[in-house]
Structure formats: structure tokens, C-alpha cells
């Protein structure tokens, strides 16, 4: 089970997470063997500078909406950094200080967790962009119900095509970005179904239009077929929206 939800987040945080795990192990050994940690003022100052930059960037973000969560995450990173500064100061005085080692680990973990929350907040914003496109398609699909002439059908097809292409591209990029294999497969399967159903829907509308226009029998049947395809497509797009919002944690909780 991947720890980080996306490959971008994983590529940024996985190396730090591994380093911290290593430090924890050494800390445990250090407590037993009495190994010391010399002055860490310089690397802590580098972390401090990076955190100050993050806080500065966070303050430039809009105060409303979910992006404000990034501000609270950056505050947590700032607090964690304070622990690192304290750890460096304590270690300067005593390289064997156990509380300093605890501060070092707590601070590093706090930075990891705060940065992870921050990146997740931004990832959620990206997901919302994709969901907006999906909802636009869902909304436009309902227009199928008012297509009654061939001219309407041409316009409908012309309008639906680009939106569908955009959605397919976004979903494909997103699935490639996910670390959770099951979510990737779910997105790919649902998107493929939607793509397969699109020509069936167009064909269904065409049959309905021609049957109705010519006054032939089978209008009800054509209507049912069109609606069945429309409902199936809507269900798949809703499934895509659901999966887009899943994280590994949600999946575990659901299981």
C-alpha cells in the first residue's frame, strides 16, 4: 500500500521519510550506545530559510476556500521548524542530549507531516479542477433528452466531443499520477466505458430522432435505449468523480 497518494508527493517526500526513519533507528541505537550528534546549526538554518519562504508564499494565497488550509499546514511546518532550532541549540551545548534528539525527530516528522498536508491540499485543488470538467460533461449529457432533430444532434455531437476529449486527457494524466494501483485501474476502466458508450449514445439519439421524425413505430423503444446509454454514461462519470476523491486512507476505511 503506497504511503503517498500521488507520484509528485511521493517523489518529494519519500526520500525525507526514509532519512527520518533512518534517523529514528540511529536515535534508538544512540540511546543505547551513547553516540553523539555535533552542531547542526547550518543545516537547520537552511530548513528555516526554506520554511520562511513557504510561509511567505502561503501568505500570498487567497484567504478563502480550501487553499486557506495550506496556511494552517504552513504554520505547522513553522512550529516544527522551531523544534529543530531548539534541537540544534541543545545539541550545540550537549551532543548527547536525549531531549535534543527527540526534538530533532519530532521536528523532522512535523515538517514531513505539515509539508505532506500542504501538498495534499494543493492536490485536492487539482482534483477539483478535473471534477468540474466531469460535472460539465454530466450536465451536458442531459441535453441528449432535448435533441429531437438531426441539426440538434450535429450540434450536440460537436459540443460534447471536445469536452469528452478534455475529460479523457485529464483522467489519463491523473491516473498516471496516482500511486494507488486500484484507483488507477478504476479510473481507466470507467473512462474506457464512457468512451465506448459515446458512439452508442450518439447512435441511440440518431435512432430516436429518425424514428420520431418519420413517425415510425418503436419511438418508445428508441427512447428507452437512448436513456439507458445516457444513464450508464452518467453512472460511470459519477464513479470517476468518486474515485478521483479517494485516497488510500478512504479505501482502507471503506474496506
Amino acid at each position: 500500500m503506497p504511503v503517498f497518494h500521488t507520484k509528485t508527493i511521493e517523489s518529494i517526500l519519500e526520500p525525507v521519510a526514509q532519512q527520518i526513519s533512518h534517523l529514528v533507528i540511529m536515535h534508538e541505537e544512540g540511546e543505547v550506545d551513547g553516540k553523539g550528534i555535533p552542531d547542526l546549526s547550518a543545516p537547520v538554518a537552511a530548513v528555516q530559510a526554506a520554511v520562511s519562504n513557504l510561509v511567505r508564499v502561503s501568505k500570498t494565497l487567497p484567504p478563502s476556500g480550501k487553499l486557506s488550509q495550506s496556511f494552517s499546514a504552513s504554520l505547522r511546518v513553522e512550529n516544527a521548524c522551531t523544534k529543530l532550532v531548539q534541537a540544534a541549540s541543545m545539541l550545540k551545548a550537549d551532543p548527547y542530549s536525549v531531549p535534543a534528539r527527540d526534538y530533532l525527530i519530532d521536528g523532522s516528522r512535523g515538517i514531513l507531516s505539515g509539508t505532506s498536508d500542504l501538498l495534499l491540499t494543493f492536490d485536492e485543488a487539482e482534483v477539483r479542477k478535473i471534477i468540474r470538467v466531469c460535472k460539465g460533461i454530466l450536465e451536458y449529457l442531459t441535453v441528449a433528452e432535448v435533441v429531437e432533430t438531426m441539426e440538434d444532434l450535429i450540434t450536440y455531437t460537436k459540443n460534447l466531443g471536445p469536452g469528452m476529449t478534455k475529460m479523457a486527457k485529464m483522467i489519463d494524466e491523473r491516473q498516471q499520477e496516482l500511486t494507488h494501483q486500484e484507483h488507477r485501474v478504476m479510473l481507466v476502466n470507467s473512462m474506457n466505458t464512457v468512451k465506448e458508450l459515446l458512439p452508442i449514445l450518439i447512435s441511440g439519439i440518431k435512432i430516436f430522432v429518425t424514428t420520431k421524425t418519420s413517425g415510425s413505430q418503436g419511438v418508445e423503444e428508441a427512447l428507452k435505449n437512448r436513456n439507458f446509454t445516457f444513464e450508464k454514461m452518467s453512472a460511470e462519470i459519477n464513479e470517476i468523480i468518486r474515485v478521483l476523491q479517494l485516497t488510500s486512507w478512504d479505501e482502507d476505511a471503506w474496506a
Binding site: 525525507v16 532519512q19 533512518h22 544512540g30 553523539g36 555535533p38 495550506s70 500542504l118 501538498l119 494543493f122
Partner: peptide, 29 residues
């Protein structure tokens, strides 16, 4: 983008710090 870059910088600096702490401990063994 700016946040992503800022997060990358923090991750890199923290990684360097933790690495320094781990390496220093190793040297003192």
C-alpha cells in the same frame, strides 16, 4: 507552482539536515 517549489526546498533541506545528523552520528561511533 510556488508552493510546490517551496515544499521541494523544505524537503531537500530537511533531508540534508537529517542526513547530516545521521552521518555525524556514524562518524562518532
Amino acid at each position: 507552482e510556488q508552493i510546490l517549489e517551496a515544499a521541494k526546498s523544505i524537503a531537500a533541506a530537511t533531508s540534508a539536515l537529517v542526513k547530516a545528523a545521521s552521518a555525524a552520528q556514524r562518524e562518532l561511533v
